[in-house]
Amino acid sequence: MESGPAIFAALAFGLFGAALLVWTGVRTAHRSPVAAGVSPVRAAAVTALAGAVCLGLGLWCLTRI
């Protein structure tokens, strides 16, 4: 019964993390700013880290099923 919320959380974290990584990759490939008013390298690094953490949380949620 408790696997439903774990699956939902895993999908939510996984989709958000993957989308954030893809968006960051596309923005940096086109040399567009990732965040306004911030160093491009720092913004790309922080968003990539956040995307990786979200993917990790999604995988962690799947191991709790």
Rank of each mutant, 00 (worst) to 15 (best):
L11S: 09
T63Y: 02
L11N: 08
F13N: 11
V26M: 12
V34M: 03
T47H: 09
M1E: 14
A10Q: 02
L55F: 05
L59M: 12
A36P: 00
L49A: 14
R31Y: 03
A50F: 05
G17A: 02
G4P: 06
R42F: 14
V34G: 04
S3W: 09
A35H: 04
W60Q: 06
A29E: 03
A52M: 11
A29T: 09
A12V: 13
T47C: 12
V53P: 04
S3L: 08
V26W: 07
S39Y: 00
P33N: 03
C61H: 14
V22N: 00
V22L: 13
L11D: 08
A9M: 11
P5I: 07
S39T: 12
I7F: 09
L57I: 07
W60L: 13
R42W: 06
G17W: 09
R31N: 15
V53F: 12
T24Q: 00
M1F: 10
F8Y: 09
W23F: 13
T28L: 02
L57D: 05
S39F: 00
A50H: 03
C61I: 07
I7D: 08
V22P: 04
R42T: 12
W60A: 01
R64D: 15
A19L: 10
L59R: 01
V38S: 06
A45F: 09
A12Y: 01
L20W: 01
W23R: 13
G58I: 00
C61P: 00
L49I: 06
L59K: 01
A43L: 08
L62G: 05
L49N: 04
R64M: 10
A29Q: 11
W23G: 12
G56V: 06
L20T: 12
L55I: 10
W60E: 08
A48H: 01
A6I: 06
R27F: 04
V22S: 08
A52E: 00
L20D: 02
M1V: 02
H30M: 09
A29F: 14
A43S: 14
G37F: 11
V46N: 10
P33R: 06
A35S: 04
L21H: 01
T63C: 02
A52R: 05
A36Q: 11
A9R: 10
T24S: 09
L55W: 01
L21I: 11
V46I: 15
P33I: 00
G51F: 03
P33Q: 06
A10W: 01
F16I: 15
A35R: 13
L62C: 11
F13D: 01
A6K: 14
G4A: 14
R31W: 03
G4Q: 08
G25H: 04
A35P: 02
A6D: 09
T47R: 15
